[in-house]
Write a protein that binds this DNA or RNA. Structure first.
Lengths: 206, 206
DNA sequence: ATTGTTCTGTACCGAACGGTAATATATAGA
DNA sequence: TCTATATATTACCGTTCGGTACAGAACAAT
């Protein structure tokens, strides 16, 4: 899916807009929104500033498009883990999957969405707000999935789906930060495994 | 403990250096290192830039001094929680204490150390490195305390103190982020309670 | 070949950044 | 009162920030 319809008249664009966007995502992923300068972006994307502005609007819109690209990846953590039938497998899949994906060295470490939110002063308020909404949406998806599991009788009676969703979000954010700080895949997997074991023990009927 | 020895000659300083430092800490706490500008600092501290530079060196040194102030607070989370004898109380104290302190509205939300690390591009590398060392030191303190508990037979045999310390760190970082994003004290306490219950169940002998 | 359209590159904008030179001002000691 | 010293104030430095005006270059349609 291209971002801007290819023009059939005029000078043709000299770069692949999808590849450029992916490069931009990588920079935002690594440095966050405010931590990324236009010079870093243009250098990584292999284009000059006016080309960037013509193709993507401005830094803010470029960021949103990059985040869209990130969230629509087919190998998204949620997409994979939610395919499991049993809630225990979902929880294990989410935590161990996060540990694996956040340390996957084929792209920057951690979660792009979580990393981006960080380096944001009061200046870029719309960025903060939008990223927060996305994260809230994901938390809601988790809560919905856990609620569904509870209806099926998979969860303990005293386990609140919303709280469990918050706890998972907390763990994701912590795992993402640790990954960004250079934690190894082994360390994060041990952490994820211990967390999963604890959650399964106190929240899931067996 | 003052930062700079009070001069007994020359024009006396027109502001309280300790109060100014505390104001600086609050700004860094709220906005992170790179997210904080000198104008914000001087405004919050009630002084002009040359006074700031005369008293604290530069932005980087001011940050280090502010972080020192933060870590040497008497009501530090670790100081309080480590006073408990039983490891179960330590773990509960750490998690519930974090939920409470991170949402305490008498100061910025979240953990200052964790928040600061975030908004740091490759530029301020020494900041990143120093903050990382501090966080690592805290993780080590946790690991030592858990190791000690294991020696006393308080932990399950298959519970690795280092992994448990990593999991606690992960939870702290997640809780701090959620607090910074505006989570309520109630929500965080529920999350902390659930996490504590899980950890106590799988890691601690009862 | 000309025109219209769109992209590319250079060179620049005002604003904000961290940091400082120069100078005025307030105190202690002589 | 005068001098030495340390602080406060103003006004400025060079750099980088996000963003853009402008002119040239490459294509499709005529």
């Amino acid at each position: 899916m291209t971002i801007t319809k290819a023009a059939c008249v005029g000078r043709p664009r000299g770069f692949d807009i999808d590849i450029a966007l992916e490069q931009a995502l990588n920079v935002f992923w690594r440095n966050g929104y405010e931590g990324t300068s236009l010079n870093e972006l243009t250098e990584a994307m292999g284009i000059k500033k006016p080309s960037l502005y013509a193709a993507f609007g401005n830094k803010e819109q470029l960021f949103f498009k990059a985040i869209d690209l990130y969230e629509n990846r087919p190998d998204s953590l949620f997409n994979i883990a939610f395919q499991h039938e049993h809630i225990a497998d979902v929880i294990r899949g989410l935590l161990l999957g996060a540990a694996a994906q956040f340390t996957d060295c084929s792209h920057p470490q951690g979660c792009a969405l979580i990393n981006s939110t960080l380096s944001c002063s009061e200046a870029s308020d719309s960025i903060k707000k939008t990223v927060l909404e996305r994260k809230l949406k994901h938390k809601q998806q988790l809560a919905d999935r856990f609620e569904q599991a509870k209806c099926k009788g998979e969860l303990q009676d005293d386990c609140e789906p919303v709280v469990l969703a918050s706890l998972m979000t907390t763990l994701f954010q912590g795992l993402s930060m640790q990954a960004s700080e250079g934690a190894s895949v082994e360390e994060l997997q041990q952490v994820a495994a211990m967390a999963a074991e604890g959650i399964l023990t106190v929240c899931v009927k067996r």
